[in-house]
Structures are given as C-alpha cells and as structure tokens.
Design a protein around this nucleic acid. Structure first.
Length: 734
DNA sequence: AGTATAGTGACCTTGTGAGA
DNA sequence: TCTCACAAGGTCACTATACT
C-alpha cells in the first residue's frame, strides 16, 4: 500500500473546499445527449469555467468537452456523447464531479449497483483538439488490481439481503476474480460484457423486477444527500485508492465506528478468508508497530461477514468516526492480515492518515480528537434515533449543529429530514418512539404543527403510534406531506419539534435548513393558498363530497374544519396537480382549496337542513348528474325518488335522486334525470356554488340558490380592496 | 458473543376523487 | 362503470443497539 495513489500530483490532496456536484443519469440525459451542470454550481464557479473543460477519471483518462450555454443553462455538450458511450453510461448511473479549478474536473462514475464502475484498462486522453472525432490515445497503463470495492458495509436494503439483486454466483458488489478475469471481461469489451450479462440473466429469475429495484434504489440514493461534500470527499479519496492486492472499502456507520462490530461483504470473506471464522490482524497504514487482532465471522444465508471481538478496540484506537472510509487491504492470505487505510471525513483531516492525524501513539482517547470532529460526532449521536445512517455534507452538519444549539425547557425532539420525509409517494415523518411514548401517549391523535417563523401558520397532521411484532413506529402521517411541502423542507433540514401543549398536542417547529438559499415557508406566491388551522379547533367529522352540509340545523356548519382538512390534503397536491394540469389535457375539477374558498364565500345560514355544492365540470358537461353529500342523502333522502328543485323566483324542475353502489367507491348519492334541464335553464357554470335547502312538504323539495362564479369575479373587480366580509354579504344569495 | 428489542425505511393495500 | 392518480394506513424485513 502506498500513499502515492492519492498523494501524488495527479491526485492532489482533497480539500472539502473543492466544489462538488453529482448527477444521476436520467432517461432525458441520454436522450438529449448532454449533461446539465447544476445552476448552483455555476453560480459558485461559473466564472472560472471556460468554454472547454477537461474531465479526469480515476483510471487516468482525461476527456475534453465543450460547454453549451443556452439561456442560462449550461450543459456538457460536445464530447459528452462519446464519453457516455465509452463508459457505457446508462440510466441510473451516477457521476460525482469534483472541480479542481481552471475548467478541470475529476469525475467518478457509479453504476446502478451503487458501486464504482470498472474503468476500461486503457485510459484515454481526448486532449487532442479533435473533439468531434474523439481520438483517444492511451496515456498510461493502469494498475491491475484485485479488489472488492464496497462502499457500504451493510447491504443497502433489506430486500437485497435475502434476495440479492443479482442472485447468481457473482455477488452484486463488483468483484474481479483475477487480473485475467478482468481482461476477459471489462467495460472495454462491451460484447463480452453483455454476453456475460446475458448469461447471468439466464440464471436470474425475476431479474427485471430486481433491476427495477436497483433503479428504485438508485433513485433513492439520488435523493439522499450524496452530494454532501464531506462524506463524498472521503469516498472519493477512497475511490482513488488502488492496490494490486485484494481489498474492500467500508464506510463507517454508527454501528461500526462506535459499535461492537463491522460488517463487510461475505463475498470477500468467502473468497479470501476461506469462508470460516477466524482471527484477522489489522494494521493501520504507515503504522507498523501496532496491530489489532479481530475476529471475523460470516453469517450464512446473508451477504455480510463481520469483524467483531477486538473491533471496538480498533475503532476506538483509531478514532474512527461515522463517515470515515476504511480500505482493508489483504496482505497475506495465510495469516490473514490487513493493512487498513483510513480516509477521514475532510475538515478534520485533509489527507488520509497524515502524520499529524495519526492517533497511533495516542491511546484510544477520544477526548483528544478535534473539536469539530467531537462536535460532529456528538451531534450525530444526539440525533441518532432519527438518523441511523451517517449524515453527510457540510451543510447538513451545519444544520445539525445549529439544531443542536437549540435549547428549550419544553420537551422536544430533533429530526433530520430524510428523502422519505420530504418527497416521494410515501411521505411521512418518523420520530423517536421513546419521545412518543413519553409525551404523546399511544393513541392516534391529530397534532397541530406551528412553524416558529412568526407567521402563526399552523398545520394539522395525524400522529400514529404503532406497535407491530414488538416493533414500534411513531409517525406523523396524514397532513405531514402538506407541512413538508408547504415549508419547503429539504433533505438534511433539521426540524425541532417543541411540545407546547401535551393535551391538544401542539408543537412549535423550528426548522434549521440545510441550504441557505432554501425558500422560506410558503413563498409569497403560495401564501394565499395556505389555510390556517387553529389549534383550538377539533377535527370535524369527515364529509366526503364536493360540498359541505349543515346536518345540524341552526348551527354553523363545520366549514372551517373542512377547509382545514381540505387544505392539508390539498397543499400536498398543489405541486403535482399544477404540473399535471399543464402536462395533460385531462380536465380536472377544482382543487379542494378552490372549492373550499368558493364554498366559504357562499355563506348561508338556515334552520333547515342544507348543503352546498361547487359545480364541477363533470356536473354540467359529461355526466349530467350531480353528486351530493352522502351523509346528507342518507339522513334526509330515501334510496331513490323524485325531488323538486325550485329557485327563488318559484320556478321548479323535477329531477331524480338515486343512491348508487359503486364497486370501487361504495355508495354515491346523485341527482340525475332532470338535473341536466336544471343546469341548462339556470345556465349553471363551472365554479358556481349551489345551495340546496331542504323544504319540508309531501315531496322532497329543495330551494336552490346559485352563487355565480362570474358575478363574484365581477364583483371583486368593482369592489377593489373592500373587506371580504362585505363582499360576501352582497354576493351570497341571489 | 449471542440474543432480544427498538427503530427505520420501503412499499403494499386501501380509499377517494375525478375524467373518460 | 372503468381507469387512473394520489394520499394515507398499515405491514414487515432489516439494521442498530442494548442487554445478558
């Protein structure tokens, strides 16, 4: 092992100050045949970029590419297609770019298995001016090595453990069996490679499913803060590491850095450790005097092997921290000794195992670690319940640090936003069950979240505490997505939930943002879409319809509660809906918020039962029926029958009421036959609000009042800034 | 060192709204 | 009536940690 691989001039010592960005290769990247450079990066470094950039790879290859600037967006353009083709870059691949200045980047490529690719053994140099032709000239021989490169010490997902992604003899982690094997099949011989893949596929049932799984995981990993410069730096430094001997790399996780064991790939154990428990000797690179003896064991039926007994001493003795990357280079197959190269998180140690950083002579005294490191570790520990995976990225650490400085006399818990907390289909928030048990009781409840930005805005979310098979989950679910989106929460942000009232479960939420330029909660353009939920309000009975009902004559309707509920639900759909609306011609009705607004403006009170309906496109166009609140129908109407609809000018229409049982939706209450005539005669338009007041008599009769959307718009124009209440009073009933 | 338990994250299932 | 999209509820495999 030599430090030359990363310490020479080709691989200058890494500094976290080097700007990084990463790109996940998407379908559109391949279609467009160019790679977009992130705007934020351009803002930071754009001025130093020339029209032509060079990309260096760990294998020594260097590529020249032209930048294309189009309306402020910048792409890697000329040269990229050849680059992508040469390295067989596919959808789901990830590239990390480290900017070295002077339009020079170092790049690392990861494939869909999340492992760095095997670079072709003959490095290329596209330095030649002929960018279009991409004349590639071998620059230097690459060192052949025999390695297993693993960036995770544990399988990334439960699915992969029992059901390996590529369930064949070859593990999904990249493994070269021998230098020969490498020449037999590497990415420079795509045909052979594809044949191999084809063979593999023959052996693999459900491969397609698993590939989907890989892609999904890849997506997920894309959404994780991999761009965090610090952890990436350690990984990147480690990725530059080369050795002729077999080695594997492991990123330290809390369980390995501070725990009692270290997991590593069983494939390596099987191949090199003779597949049976034993003892291994660990010696840290550049430190010949001290060795550690650790026991290793493989867990059959799983893809992991484990260093234990003695591992904690090694971890403590070398002051390993979460995020550090250790490369274990097998020295002797017989005696099973490893040289361990430690790549520290930058910030605390600029180079791997620089003499000053060595803790070799220091006994395992954690107090002697740097303040920063200690701080980071402390924060991570503090947040451990919600962050089992190592956090990364200087911004995130900054957010954590800010959050850790937060003090409150009230009970509070801190949660770092993870991808699944702020985006995706299954958006929820997990928080420590211990906190939930102590302060929130076990029963499901509605919780009010109030952001501490002085806006006084509140959000209603559902709190769920579940114990299943002795596992406990405490989560915010229904409404959480609205909160996350409404407050523009991003991965890495830290939310501190301060319990204000433990009876009504009111939380103040303090948000520490990972990104300084994150927009504040509810940018002005969305402000008016936010609907406040007063903590004092209890949740209403749900009414599932496009309208509201006054089922308790003489009392105000529970509109506000409905508004709150609808708002919560709707805030979560605003983004998707708006983008969808533009993307599809499919005509959709009003959003719940729009409906709620219209309904609220059509203020009406009566001692008689009534319900309000916002006219949806489907009520007046395609289906010619009106769906009315089921609860109202059940309570006041029979299964089927004629109804009379009358307007204030005493004109009447007869229509039919019916209850339908839909397979997919259950019961639905509708006005049909006759409704169409009513719509036409009263010139009902989408957006109008109809108030149906039930009049007692021998027949079921409704007095229908229409609040015209057009009138309201017109009225708003003429009324200017007059208070809304006045406006409402005038427009409510015609 | 082994085992039990708590915690996490992925994703399956169900329900609802709405257009065709 | 079917289908699609989406949100929320719920489950469980897996990981990390605590305990013996």
């Amino acid at each position: 092992m030599s430090r030359g691989a990363f310490g020479d001039s080709n691989h200058p010592a890494f500094s976290s100050r080097n700007p990084h960005f990463f790109k996940i290769v998407l379908e559109e990247t391949l279609q467009e045949n160019k790679l977009r450079i992130p705007n934020l990066f351009l803002r930071k470094c754009g001025e130093t970029l020339s029209n032509s950039v060079s990309i260096k790879l760990p294998c020594g290859s260097e590529w020249k590419m032209k930048l294309k600037n189009d309306g402020g967006k910048v792409w890697l353009d000329k040269g990229w297609p050849e680059f992508a083709k040469y390295y067989s870059i596919k959808r789901g691949h990830m590239l990390i770019f480290r900017y070295e200045g002077n339009s020079e980047f170092h790049a690392v490529i990861f494939d869909t298995s999340t492992v760095e690719i095997d670079y072709p053994s003959i490095p290329v140099n596209s330095d030649e001016p002929n960018i279009d032709g991409e004349l590639r000239v071998p620059k230097r021989e690459v060192i052949e090595d025999d390695s297993v490169q693993v960036l995770d010490d544990c399988p990334p997902s439960r699915k992969t453990r029992e059901k390996p992604l590529l369930p064949c003899s070859q593990p999904h982690k990249k493994m070269r069996t021998s230098p020969n094997a490498k020449t037999q099949c590497n990415s420079s011989c795509p045909k052979q490679k594809s044949e191999m893949k084809g063979k593999r596929n023959l052996h693999c049932n459900n491969t397609r499913k698993r590939i989907t799984e890989i892609l999904r995981r890849m997506k997920a990993s894309a959404s994780k803060p991999l761009g965090g410069s610090e952890e990436v730096s350690a990984l990147q430094k480690a990725s530059d590491f080369k050795s002729k001997r077999p080695f594997f790399k492991v990123v330290m996780k809390p369980c390995s850095a501070h725990g009692t064991c270290l997991n590593f790939p069983a494939s390596f154990a099987r191949k090199y450790l003779k597949d049976k428990p034993g003892t291994a000797i660990l010696r840290v690179s550049n430190e010949s005097r001290r060795t550690w003896s650790v026991k290793f064991k493989e867990y059959h039926g799983t893809s992991i092997a484990r260093f234990q007994g003695g591992w904690p001493a090694f971890a403590r003795g070398n002051n390993l921290e979460v995020g550090d990357v250790c490369v274990f280079v097998l020295l002797k197959d017989m005696k099973l000794s490893f040289e361990v190269v430690i790549f520290r998180l930058s910030g605390s140690s600029p180079t791997p195992m620089s003499p000053g950083r060595h803790i070799l002579h220091a006994r395992p005294d954690r107090n002697q670690s740097t303040n920063t490191r200690k701080r980071k570790s402390e924060i991570l520990r503090h947040l451990k319940p919600s962050t089992s995976k190592p956090s990364s990225g200087s911004e995130e650490v900054a957010a954590l640090q800010k959050a850790s400085d937060f003090k409150s006399k009230r009970p509070c818990c801190k949660v770092v936003m993870k991808p699944c907390y702020v985006r995706g289909r299954y958006c929820y928030l997990s928080f420590p069950a211990s906190f939930a048990r102590k302060y929130l009781k076990h029963k499901p409840n509605d919780v009010i979240l109030k952001v501490s930005n002085g806006s006084g805005r509140t959000w209603s979310v559902k709190y769920r505490f579940k114990v299943y098979n002795r596992t406990t989950t405490a989560r915010f679910k229904g409404g959480w997505m609205a909160f996350a989106r409404g407050n523009n929460l991003e991965v890495g942000d830290v939310c501190v939930f301060v319990l204000l009232k433990d009876i009504k479960l009111l939380f103040e939420v303090v948000i520490f943002r990972v990104s300084a330029n994150s927009t504040n909660p509810l940018s002005p353009d969305r402000m008016d879409e936010a609907i406040q939920v007063e903590p004092e309000e209890s949740s209403s009975n749900e009414t599932e319809s496009s309208g509201t009902i006054n089922d308790e004559p003489g009392t105000p309707s529970s509109l506000d509660n409905l508004l709150a509920k609808q708002a919560n639900r709707d805030m979560s759909t605003i983004g998707k809906r708006s983008s969808k609306l533009s993307a599809t011609r499919r005509q959709r009705g009003f959003t719940s918020i729009e409906k709620a607004r219209l309904l609220e403006r059509a203020r009406f009170e009566s001692k008689k039962p009534f319900f309000k309906i916002v006219i949806q496109p489907s009520f007046v166009h395609s289906r010619w029926y009106l769906e009315l609140p089921l609860d109202f129908a059940k309570r006041y109407l029979k299964n089927k029958g004629d109804v009379v609809l009358s307007t204030p000018n005493d004109r009447t229409w007869s229509a039919q009421f019916r209850l339908r049982h839909l397979k997919s939706r259950g019961l639905r209450a509708e006005f049909c036959c006759g409704w169409m005539k009513f719509v036409e005669d009263n010139n009902l338009k989408v957006g109008d609000v109809c108030i149906f007041e039930l009049i007692n008599g021998c027949k079921i009769c409704f007095k229908v009042r229409v609040v015209r959307a057009a009138d309201e718009a017109c009225h708003q124009k003429t009324q200017g800034d007059k208070p809304k209440e006045d406006m409402r009073a005038k427009i409510v009933i015609k």
